[in-house]
Design a protein around this nucleic acid. Structure first.
Lengths: 211, 211
DNA sequence: CCCATTCTTCATCGCCCGATGAAGAACACC
DNA sequence: GGTGTTCTTCATCGGGCGATGAAGAATGGG
């Protein structure tokens, strides 16, 4: 991006759809890096080689652009689908691998974007909560079927959020510069333990009436 | 806060130190709730019943105020000290309890404040990283003394960050509305497992040459 | 009583923000 | 070749931001 000079004159330049795509792509990147509040429409427009007014022409408001960007209709649900396809014994590693691989691509995967925006933007906070509830907690709870499923899913959520923040936001070592395989080796078993590990402190009566 | 009306006239009103304290207190609260970028000096001043210029009079810049607020010279290190005082077998529960109790007080404890600000403020990101490195990773690594200590400490960091984000930022259920005891019961053993659990994938040779 | 110091207010500056509205340039169609 | 639609630019508005500087009011010391 950023080759937007050479004497632009008014009038039709690109197919419109192309400009829209450029804006979307740059917006994804900047929102991903800086979150909603700290990303300005003008910065997006400049980086996309486009007049700021075009952003409003295509998306109405800044929030409209953000909604278009955080819209989860891409292939992300597909990746999530693949997690729950395999067997339960190795789902921990699959969760960690899918998470880190998708986040490393830095392309879309709105989770980091939302996590970055949630602290300052109430809308993002709600979106993040809904996303996790729907795509993680819900599916995990359904998969497990045990009465402590909600609790186990919550533990996995903590792993996911902690991993995302440690690697991509706070950039804590050695998490930040570990390879995907190393992270899977470290946190895969941990997540697995959260889901299918010993009953820990769970009341036996609850388990009995569930099976 | 917010009773700042009744015909204020220019001149000396409070002891100065009192105004400074009011500003600090309100700033702590707002930074804690909204992070650095989304909290305005004007909002702090208004909430403290004070002219915005006073903030700059006392603290120079907005960043100066933030530094004063995030200064870790209070009793927080003391709370951390208590964690490492007890024995290693129950340190997991102590970590979780201390973390949640301090965060619930919402008074200072800059960890959430920094976590909220880190996504948008590079300074906060650095501060957060340094804080965790110094107060958590360093101490844990020294306490364990094993070659995989850094890795285990990193796992604990993920737990801490994940717990903080899930409970205080994304507000994911049932983490957000659990009691302290419930969280300790759930995550204490998990943290303990990270620190003193089975060797998992760790090479046996490394463990041998450490003991 | 005066004066220096400390605290407080006010007016304002310059900047960047999100957003609007009009006007112009390239195209498509007939 | 005119005509209407689509895309693009430009100028601008209103507003909030961080920050500054001067001036005014309470205080305390001599």
């Amino acid at each position: 991006m950023a080759e937007h000079d050479d004497s632009r004159r008014p009038g039709r330049w690109r197919s419109g759809a192309e400009s829209k795509q450029r804006i979307l792509q740059v917006a994804r990147e900047l929102f991903h890096q800086q979150g909603y509040g700290s990303t300005t429409v003008r910065a997006i427009a400049t980086a996309a080689g486009v007049d700021p007014a075009m952003v409003f022409y295509f998306f109405g408001t800044k929030q409209g652009l953000f909604s278009a960007v955080t819209d989860m209709s891409g292939n992300v649900p597909q990746a999530i689908e693949a997690i729950f396809a395999g067997d339960l014994d190795t789902i921990g590693a699959r969760i960690v691998r899918t998470l880190v691989e998708n986040l490393d691509k830095s392309d879309h995967m709105p989770l980091v974007m939302l996590t970055r925006s949630a602290p300052t933007d109430p809308r993002s906070e709600a979106l993040l909560r809904e996303f996790i509830d729907r795509e993680i907690t819900g599916r995990l709870a359904a998969l497990l079927g045990t009465p402590d499923a909600a609790l186990r899913a919550a533990m996995v959520n903590v792993q996911i959020l902690g991993l995302a923040v440690a690697r991509y936001i706070a950039r804590i070592e050695p998490i930040a510069s570990s390879s995907v395989d190393e992270l899977v080796a470290t946190f895969g078993p941990l997540v697995q333990h959260c889901l299918t590990g010993g009953t820990r402190h769970v009341d036996v009566r609850e388990l009995r009436e569930a099976e």
